[in-house]
Design a binder for these strands. Structure first.
Lengths: 362, 362
DNA sequence: GTTAGCACTCTCGCACCGAGAGTGCTAAGA
DNA sequence: TCTTAGCACTCTCGGTGCGAGAGTGCTAAC
């Protein structure tokens, strides 16, 4: 374990480097942080910290900068969380206050706010769609030969798609199909609804429908493809990419290029944002993706109806204002969860009696 | 007008500069393009061209580079269109061949292909939604207290939104509302469907429905907000942002930053992509947006059912491979239009007889 | 009108140098 | 034994100077 003085020195180095982006020397530290000892002592401590792997020296006669390990120790042991500044809180309160009900617009705004406040790159992973429980699957005739398939889950999630109908499929057929699928699938978690299951169900159904078999087959296949297919991909919202260019560690164009390329690869971003609930911090080499080996990714999950369903993240240099970013993400996750709660359908659906009862006398 | 020889020299300068990115001198031109005259003559012509505004000199003893005017002349008079290379054509044919029916996925792929083939930034403006003609407006009960509103137009465009129902609204009410709105609005272009019109209709309707008036009012208002509101915004897809960093003219980080910032401003991009049908080329200072004053934007519209509804664009330095980019965009627009035609609902809807008739005997 | 020749200009890369910052080591002091 | 002052040493960084190279503009000859 590190002696208390070493911890103090390490903390001072990290703080100083985060705010100046310059390698910090013992003299600077001596002048600006009063550590109670001379620069020579600090120098010795810094030499020790370097040997232990917490600091690095860009070149012999430069100051030192924290290593990934140094940041890690700082985040785990030294950093103190401070609440988000009033002004920023106010800015973020827009999200639940705005009354926006479109998930898409809501998340774009969240992403924009995150990058604006943090001055780093923001990433927002949309609510996962493989969790919810199916409630209704409906085929709605729109007009002759056109119908819409609607998938409705308990997590205020609706998906729909237009289907072109084979000739001579009747509205009753659609109703029958809707009822059948809903009856057999309602209550099942979406992740269970695989291609095989659907196909099985579907074949079963066709037995009863021999007369129209051929016509329905085509339609059913389209439906199966949709439900089982990748249609349910989760979107990633990015924002503030230009912020990265303000960071002195990203003056190297090749580095920036790699990062920009990453931001266009949705699958990689998904991988990057697969995180457990709560706040996580991944520093430099701790990251699996090579493109972010010199970056830190801080994430926080947000919830809908108490269940973590999506991820907010900040991507920046390892020299990041950790305390600020963490409280920012926590606060924003709260706001977003709140915004979702405001417009939650589930609540309304799950407890209609209560709500009706409460509202009626007014 | 320019003498033929001047045109030849200008063309040679543009071609040379496009491929090397270095200011071109009279000697280089003499060596690589055989213009039939000596370097001294070329030198004189170049001096003239500079005086006329077609060329510029970065500094006294450097070669020359084309000015915006020079590029303009090149594009309008000198450049010869050549067909897209086989390999690239093949790549782009994926789009109509893939069978993808989700507009969103289709356009992401188009954007990706465009940037990949061009090595510049690609922009894709989704199909405009204010054009189509409303066919059906439907309120579909999903379960108790939850319904979905569906807007269906002739341009294979469907929008939908979940509505939480006020207590004690009956499914019949929904059907009534659907029928009423559809009857009154069907056949109208979406752009005519404004808040005022809807409100008028809606008030009219309430007359007939006095009994449930209060309950329906809330629902109707939500509907009006949706239809009249900005819900129908058109998405912009971007791709290949990292390509810009490969261009020697974008080594200046501040320039890159401004461009990246622009790419996150949807409204500005909309403005940038508001173009007339066909191919347009906007060079450097011809652009209104300051952030792209050193760039060229080439656009091409694509069509659904013969009507131009969206825009493909390439954004790159003014030193751009114009001929290639133009044929790329034209070809891609064709592919995309084709892809839309494949999945067009309108065709099926508009001419069901024909299609049915043609299909039935098979 | 075209071309060869030539003097002139400007950039770019390279080496050099001195200032400044920071280190490591040593020796003296507590 | 730990701390500190002092000092020599190292390394970067910005500025300067210089020569090579590329290109021009001008002049005079064809």
């Amino acid at each position: 374990m590190l002696s208390e003085r070493k911890q103090k020195v390490l903390e001072a180095v990290v703080r100083e480097y985060i705010s100046t982006a310059e390698p910090v020397g013992s003299r600077t530290l001596f002048r600006r942080h009063n550590l109670g000892v001379s620069s020579a002592t600090i120098r010795n401590e810094m030499a020790d910290l370097e040997e232990m792997g917490y600091l690095e020296q860009p070149h012999t006669s430069a100051g030192r900068i924290p290593s990934d390990l140094g940041y890690r120790f700082y985040v785990d042991n030294l950093m103190q969380a401070n609440p988000l500044p009033e002004g920023e809180q106010e800015l973020l309160r827009q999200v639940p206050a705005s009354g926006i009900t479109e998930t898409d617009i809501l998340l774009s705004q969240v992403s924009r706010l995150l990058s604006q406040v943090s001055n780093y790159i923001s990433l927002v992973l949309g609510p996962r769609t493989d969790r919810g429980v199916l409630r209704t699957l409906k085929l709605v005739p729109l007009e002759e030969h056109v119908a819409m398939a609607v998938l409705f889950t308990d997590q205020r999630k609706v998906e729909s798609r237009v289907l072109v109908l084979p000739p001579q499929v009747e509205p009753e057929d659609l109703e029958g199909l809707s009822r059948y699928f809903t009856r057999r699938l309602a209550g099942r978690p979406l992740e269970e609804i695989t291609g095989e299951l659907l196909t099985t169900l579907y074949l079963e159904l066709l037995e009863d429908y021999c007369a129209k078999r051929d016509r329905l087959a085509e339609l059913g296949q389209a439906l199966v493809n949709w439900l089982a297919g990748g249609g349910r991909r989760v979107k990633v919202y990015t924002g503030g990419t230009q912020n990265i260019l303000r960071q002195p560690e990203f003056q190297d164009l090749e580095k920036v290029r790699r990062l920009l390329a990453l931001l266009e690869e949705e699958e990689l971003l998904h991988k990057l944002l697969e995180r457990e609930p709560g706040v996580t911090v991944t520093i430099g080499q701790e990251n699996e993706l090579p493109a972010v080996r010199e970056c830190t990714v801080v994430t926080s999950t947000y919830s809908v109806d108490g269940e973590p369903v999506g991820v907010l993240a900040i991507l920046g240099p390892t020299r990041m204002d950790y305390a600020h970013v963490i409280s920012l993400l926590e606060y924003m996750a709260g706001c977003l969860s709140e915004a979702f709660a405001n417009i939650s359908v589930r609540r309304t659906v799950a407890m209609p009696k209560q709500k009706t009862a409460a509202k009626e006398p007014v």
